[in-house]
Write a protein that binds this DNA or RNA. Structure first.
Lengths: 199, 199
DNA sequence: AAAACTATACCGGCCAGTCGGTATAGTCAA
DNA sequence: TTGACTATACCGACTGGCCGGTATAGTTTT
């Protein structure tokens, strides 16, 4: 009846990019139900698939979480790179990182940062994932230390960004929005402080 | 052969502080096996008693985790207070907090900080616990903002301490020990910077 | 003997991962 | 063009283990 075979949009048809859709579904689930709520069934349902369908694309739960982690790292790195394209003065890496971490504000109600932390929390369980995460953090630490400004100050700013972003994650915000904004401005200012320092 | 009890060769003496022992056992388990490894059976075994015995003291798992959280907060607060007893200049709260967070170094291989993060991770699962944690964080945020120094700078230092402490948690250290020490010194210096600042 | 404390057995729910099956599309040969 | 065959995508019932919690029967100590 309604079936025109060559037409792309049908109920029962291979999805264009199911894996990406699954990743987003997983993000939605983890934000709504927390880390323990991230079950294969939940993700599958959220994505409009069955568990079998999910498993077809990601053989194990860890594979799914690992893919989320990879994407998170990629996004962060590319955001930093994008920022640096328009700022190559000393401290630009840290400022880019700061911006990347705080992109949350663009989303509705800090969705992004909560997601990031949730992914990290999910990684905590699996040593293999944790190792991958750790590797990336070391790279980030190295990048901030090599940013052309006082390395310790760079670390401080980066760590504070991590801390702020972590705080965001615990449900409601710890800092008031205005105070948070002031802190961010202060952090940014710090990256310009040691920049063209003497010596 | 003095005492060949095949079963738990336990001290028949009335354990007066079993609850405390259980808390410590839970800490050991969580450090060794991670958050998902924190099962009632595991804690009981680690503490040298049965699950029934554990349940007798902590009726539910959440009660156990809650007790761990309370103890963590108490310890932190009392360490801050102890520090301030010998330093009541502006910025003392933040410096005390810094010290409390970094007590890890006194332990063998950052045990303390990893434990703290693990407890937080365990709390992530239960909304009720998360709320309690959140309350404490707000108190800490308020305390740092009221420390007699530039509030934003105080937040920055406190957040960086959180970030550093979080980094420690991911298994191996992200920063080299010397670099870490330099960062700490920088943080401490920052708390004295805005202290008696103009205005 | 009662209270305090501990051990053992068990239940029920949850959840990752399995497996046999179905539907659709593409290929190729007769 | 049609039937045989294969690959891809997906479904959903099922299983097997794990784990929180319960029930109950000891064993000490006071």
């Amino acid at each position: 009846m309604n079936d025109d075979k060559p037409a792309p949009a049908r109920p029962r048809a291979p999805r264009k990019d199911t894996k990406q859709e699954l990743l987003q579904a997983a993000a939605r689930v983890i934000l709504r139900d927390g880390v323990p709520g991230l079950t294969l069934d939940a993700v599958a349902t959220e994505a409009g698939l069955s568990k079998g369908g999910l498993i077809y694309h990601y053989a194990t739960k860890d594979a799914l979480i690992g893919a989320m982690l990879d994407q998170l790292v990629d996004v962060t790195d590319s955001q930093v790179a994008a920022y640096r394209a328009s700022d190559d003065t000393p401290g630009s890496w840290v400022r880019g990182y700061l911006k990347a971490c705080m992109l949350a504000e663009r989303d509705e109600s800090g969705t992004q940062s909560r997601l990031e932390m949730a992914i990290l929390a999910a990684c905590l369980n699996e040593p293999a994932l944790l190792r991958r995460l750790h590797k990336h953090m070391r790279e980030w630490a190295a990048a901030s230390a090599n940013d052309g400004i006082d390395p310790e100050l760079a670390h401080v700013v980066r760590l504070a960004a991590d801390g702020l972003w972590m705080n965001d994650v615990f449900g409601l915000p710890v800092l008031e929005p205005e105070e948070r904004a002031r802190v961010l401005r202060k952090l940014e200012a710090l990256t310009r402080l040691g920049g063209s320092a003497p010596e």
